[in-house]
Amino acid sequence: MIRGVRGAITVENNEEIEILTATESLVKEMIKSNNIKASDVASVFLSVTDDINAAFPAKVIRIQGDWTYVPVMCMKEIAVPNSLEKCIRIMMHWNTELCQDEIQHIYLEKAIQLRPDLTKQ
Rank of each mutant, 00 (worst) to 15 (best):
D40L: 06
D40Y: 02
D40R: 09
D40V: 01
D40P: 06
D40S: 15
V41H: 05
V41K: 10
V41E: 10
A42L: 07
A42W: 02
A42R: 05
S43W: 04
S43L: 09
S43E: 12
V44D: 04
V44G: 04
V44Q: 02
F45M: 13
F45W: 11
F45R: 14
F45P: 00
L46A: 14
L46M: 12
L46Y: 06
L46C: 13
V48K: 15
V48M: 14
V48E: 15
T49Q: 06
T49M: 12
D50W: 13
D51W: 08
D51T: 12
D51A: 06
D51Q: 14
I52A: 10
I52T: 11
I52N: 10
I52H: 08
I52D: 06
I52M: 10
N53R: 13
A55T: 03
A55S: 08
A55E: 05
A55F: 00
F56N: 15
F56P: 02
F56Q: 09
F56A: 07
P57R: 09
P57S: 07
P57F: 03
A58E: 14
A58L: 04
A58N: 08
A58R: 05
K59F: 08
K59P: 00
V60P: 01
V60C: 01
R62T: 09
R62L: 03
R62H: 09
R62I: 04
I63D: 07
I63V: 12
I63W: 13
Q64S: 06
G65V: 05
G65D: 07
D66Y: 04
D66M: 01
D66L: 07
W67P: 03
W67Q: 01
T68M: 11
T68E: 15
T68Q: 15
T68W: 09
T68H: 14
Y69W: 12
Y69C: 01
Y69F: 13
Y69R: 13
Y69A: 10
V70R: 10
V70E: 02
V70G: 01
